[in-house]
Write a protein that binds this DNA or RNA. Structure first.
Lengths: 341, 341
DNA sequence: CTGAAAGCGCTAACAG
DNA sequence: CTGTTAGCGCTTTCAG
């Protein structure tokens, strides 16, 4: 009593016709007698027939399934991007399979293998902060499996990408800090190998330069780990002598800025009077925290949709395909963690 | 140049042995010459062989894939539950496929069909608020596809379930309101057919009863739609004459309570001085909003893990399996949207 | 320890 | 318009 699932064979036998006719009828092929077709459809309904996509996939060498790898499903930026992908994918008849790397390079590699073994038709990857070797992804390309990177990307790979203009977003954020009177602006970033962190750092440095503020190495922090280290590093910055101390913090992202804000509150350091704080991403929490967080907003849902669109385009014209990088605009959302102009 | 993927056949030919031997070696079967095995493994590595799970699945009639259907991926409760399922599933060698119903019954049905067509080994469903007919799920059971319902469940189906003690959570929430001096407590719920809404309503009514407060039908609201309607309905409640007006709102969940809180702020109605508000779920935002929201916390990540565990158990002992309902404990999180005792 | 052969459920020529 | 046939890549008897 295991697999009670009906097959086209069952339908064929019941109707005393061949399985190929059933197959054709089911798929709505043009050259099939309307009566036969009707009979097949009715019998399928009656037997609760459900096409076996596994068998189909094996035969047609396509699974109509897309694989997604993100660092952490539960982070709003990613769940929102996934949601966008899911919607767009289902419009095009694709199912999605999801993995999380939990910011581990090894897990990410395993995820890639698992999805490859499942023969997904394409992979959508936002890389772990640990990842600095891209052989596992290059291998997919060698096997002609389309890859779209989003948000957490790298220059080392010739593939379609969906990113925001990190440099521009960071520039606008830091410019805002400068315009509101901050001069000793610290950058709280991620690992040195972390692409988006470096892009945002470049934007930070360029803004300083434009306003003739000399960067101070002491105020540029690279965290290896993003959960606990940032708060500790900021604490250390606050212990610098008064003239060395930062008067603003530009954080790699909101998940870093929020606990920092929390810590400042605990230490009774006033924001923005004593120190300004800016994040990146615009998590839903950020608008509600007290003081609300000034941040750079990324269109997560749209980025997800766009990633799928890029894949669809690429598939339509496989031969002369040039990997496109879609750069989406960020918006500076000014709230209360920075001073008024 | 399409599928450059190596197969066991390729390995067999290169090594001049039979494909069955390759298959055995790859799966680490016991009865295979260590030398042959070594050669096979090396050749597999060399050819970047990746087992074809599609073919495997067709043959062994198991896909090692689990299907998940939630109303909305981007809601924190669900993305957190999914994250828990993903982790637990991958421990047991399962991949996961994800769909969202977007609170639509029709979409939910399509999702079920799609996952069934993909021959997932089990389905994990949190039903849409629209769903009041369960034939689509009953059909899965008839086909011996294990189903685990979580959070959004129903009594009408004999399946494994993971829920929180909604009645108890609601009771505690309302009891807290009463103890802090509220007497005209409104319940802002979902559709009459929405199981969890009714459970929470029961908890609400029982708390009133226990404290000898007569329920007032006027204060019990059932919203058909959960995005805009609740705020409108609360506005109407506030227009009641002073002696009829509620002094507290117990909301079905945080996604309802938060916009309500926002609206009260806009209307300069003080919380909790003029009116207390309690939610359910404990979204991350809820602790940060001003005033922070008193709510009932659900262990979303753990619920996800538990759902997978239930499925694994069920699979180990298919014959004498009795569908278990796992009831998890909620915690009342007292914050600033309710008065102090 | 290894090979031959059958078949999972379906599609796609090809022939009528 | 319909049936026959040959696989897709893999596992699994059954013989050696």
């Amino acid at each position: 009593m295991k697999n009670t699932q009906a097959t086209i064979r069952d339908i064929a036998i019941k109707l005393n016709i061949s399985i190929s006719t059933v197959s054709r009828a089911l798929r709505g092929a043009p050259d099939v007698n309307p009566e036969t077709k009707k009979a097949v459809l009715e019998m399928a309904e009656k037997l609760h027939y459900e096409p076996n996509r596994v068998a189909q996939s094996l035969r047609i060498k396509r699974t109509n399934t897309l694989g997604i790898i993100v660092p952490e499903i539960a982070l709003h930026f990613f769940s929102s991007a996934i949601s966008g992908m899911q919607e767009e994918a289902s419009h095009h008849g694709y199912s999605i399979m999801i993995c999380q790397s939990l910011e581990s390079y090894e897990t990410e590699k395993q995820n890639v293998h698992m999805l490859a073994a499942n023969r997904v038709d394409g992979m959508f990857i936002s890389m772990s902060s640990e990842t600095k070797d891209y052989a596992h992804i290059q291998q997919l390309l060698n096997k002609n499996i389309p890859v779209v990177l989003f948000d957490r990307v790298t220059d080392s790979l010739q593939v379609a990408k969906v990113v925001v203009d990190d440099h521009d977003g960071a520039f606008k954020a830091v410019e805002h800090l400068i315009k509101t009177g901050c001069r000793r602006i610290a950058y709280i970033g991620g690992p040195l190998t972390f692409y988006i962190s470096n892009q945002r750092k470049r934007g930070y440095l360029d803004a300083l330069k434009q306003y003739n503020i000399a960067p101070d190495e002491e105020l540029i922090v690279h965290c290896q780990e993003l959960h606990h280290e940032p708060v500790e590093r900021v604490k250390r910055l606050l212990q610098l002598p008064p003239d060395k101390r930062p008067d603003a913090l530009f954080c790699l992202n909101d998940p870093i800025a929020l606990p920092v804000l929390q810590m400042l509150k605990e230490q009774s350091i006033r924001v923005p009077e004593d120190i300004s704080v800016v994040g990146f991403t615009n998590e839903p929490v950020s608008g509600f925290i007290e003081p609300s967080l000034t941040t750079v907003s990324q269109p997560s849902h749209e980025m997800g949709k766009k990633a799928i669109e890029l894949f669809i385009q690429q598939n339509q014209d496989l031969d002369n395909f040039i990997p496109a990088t879609e750069v989406m605009k960020t918006t500076l959302v000014v709230r209360n963690s920075t001073r008024k102009i």
